[in-house]
Amino acid sequence: MNRKIISLQVLVFLAFIFLWKSVIFIFDFPEFILPQPETIFIEWCSMLKSGLLLEHTMVTLSETIIGFVIGVFLGIIPGYFVAKSKQIDQILSPYLVALQTAPKIALAPLIVMWFGFGISSKIIIVALIVFFPILVNTIVGIRSVDKNLLDLMKILKASKLQILRLVELPASMPVLFAAFKTGITLAVIGAVVGEFIGSNKGLGYLTIYASGLMDTPQVFVAIFQLTIIGILLYLLIDFIEGKTIPWYRKGEEDVVKTSKY
C-alpha cells in the first residue's frame, strides 16, 4: 500500500469523524443518543485499561473462531459429496435449502435453551450461520473445476484422492476463500446474537448490559470492538489466502493492472 492510499484512508476517517460531530452539533443530540467520538475513545481506553474489554473480547472471539471452524468443516464435507454426486445432490438439496431458509436468528433462542447459556450454544449458532455459504461455495468450487484437467487426471490414472488434492482442492480454493471471508463476518454476528439471548460474558452481553443502563458510549465501545474483531479476522483470512493460493492472488492483481488500461 503506498503513501497516497494511506493518506486517503486517513482523510476518509477524518471526514467520517467530522460528519459524526457535525450530526451531533446540527441535531443537538445528547450523549445518550449519540456520544462524541472522543467520549467513546476515552471509554474504550478506560475499559481496555481495566481489562474488562479484553475479557469480553476473548469470549466473543473464541465463540466466533471455534464456531467458524466447525461451520467450515460442516460445510465443506457435505458440499464435496453434493458436488460430486447428482444423487446425493437431489436427496439432500431440499433439506439443505430448508436449513438455510429457516432464519437462524429466530432459531437462536431455542438453541440457547437446548444447549445452555454457556459458550456451546453460541458456537452452534455461529457454525449454523457459517455452514451454508461454505457449503454452497464448496459445491460451486468443486463443480467449476476445468473438465479437461479432470480428464487428463483420469488418463494419467490418478486416484480420487489425488484428483481431490492436486486438482479439485486447488481449483476450488479461490471460491472457498471468498466463502470464508463472508462466513467470518457472519460468524461475528452469530456470536453476538447468541450472547444477546443469553450469556454472562462477551461483547454481545456487554452491549445489552450497557444498553440497559443507557450507557451509550459503552454500547459504542462494544460495537467498535466487534467491528475490529470482524476486520482483523477478515484480514487474517485474506492473509492466509495470499499464502495458500499465491498464484490466484497474483492473477487477481494482474487483472486489476490490466483493467487500468
Partner: peptide
C-alpha cells in the same frame, strides 16, 4: 451466586433445571 442472563427464558430455564 451465579447469574444466568437468559432474556425471555427465565421460566423455562428454571423448569428445565438449568
Amino acid at each position: 451466586v451465579e447469574f444466568l442472563y437468559v432474556g425471555g427464558a427465565v421460566i423455562s430455564t428454571h423448569l428445565t433445571g438449568e
